[in-house]
């Protein structure tokens, strides 16, 4: 695969767009949790899949819970929201706590996590669609629970491309809900075609900004 590196300007645009998306995600999460939600992303990075697995192993001890959603319509790929498994249950408790007792929350955990993932990932992809003027269609969200290093590998077979060609737009995010920090990751898994389209959309966007 060609060496795909984003220029400083391309990276800046991506970070800005993803910040808008994360901002929207924070707003919807705040409505779900009924409290102020602080969400920040330090930097957006484009990296090979193998490096992402290493980052996840370093960042999440033990099992991770992920919400995966395929997307298509110009840029095709998969979006992922990944948390430590323990944090995902905590997040669901924050959202459903006042409506349900502990037993019911446990029963609904996967469904609630799917729904939370759907709103957060849709907010991020919506920012992409709006900035770059393309339409993005989301597939149905799905919950995966696996060892942290395995999560991204589980998504690879779904992509029609050689796993070695897959690149990940990687964002570390911090959610602060009810004074508690929940550390998670938002990722877009893209193949060569998806990356190429994305880069050309970013370039068009930069051209529009500069004209």
């Amino acid at each position: 695969m060609p060496d795909l590196k984003l220029s400083g300007m391309q990276k800046d645009v991506l970070t800005e767009v993803m910040n808008l998306g994360i901002g929207r995600a924070a707003s919807v999460l705040s409505e779900l949790a009924g409290d102020v939600v602080d969400m920040g992303i330090p930097e957006v990075r484009l990296m090979p899949r193998s490096k992402v697995s290493k980052k996840l192993i370093a960042g999440i001890e033990g099992k991770a819970a992920a919400v995966r959603q395929s997307f298509g319509g110009g840029i095709d790929g998969q979006s992922l929201l990944i948390f430590p498994e323990k944090a995902s249950l905590e997040l669901v408790r924050r959202i459903l706590g006042e409506h349900l007792d502990v037993g019911e929350i446990s029963d609904l955990e996967q469904d609630a996590l799917r729904e939370v993932g759907n709103v957060i990932l849709s907010a991020c992809l919506g920012a992409f669609a709006e900035a770059f003027g393309n339409r993005i269609d989301n597939g149905l969200p799905e919950v995966l629970v696996a060892n942290s290093g395995e999560v991204v590998n589980l998504c690879s077979p779904i992509m029609a491309e050689d796993p070695e060609d897959l690149r990940v737009l990687f964002m570390e995010v911090e959610f602060g809900i009810h004074s508690q920090e929940i550390h998670g990751y938002v990722m877009l898994l893209l193949g060569l075609a998806g990356i190429t389209t994305l880069v050309s959309l970013i370039d068009e966007y930069i051209k529009k900004l500069s004209s």
Partner: peptide, 26 residues
């Protein structure tokens, strides 16, 4: 009701003559 409120989706919804609000419902 959708988490995916993109301009293209809003246009499609408008063509159906129905309303749209974001998820979660406020």
């Amino acid at each position: 009701v959708t988490a995916n409120i993109q301009p293209a989706i809003q246009a499609e919804v408008a063509a159906l003559g129905v309303g749209v609000i974001g998820k979660p419902i406020n």
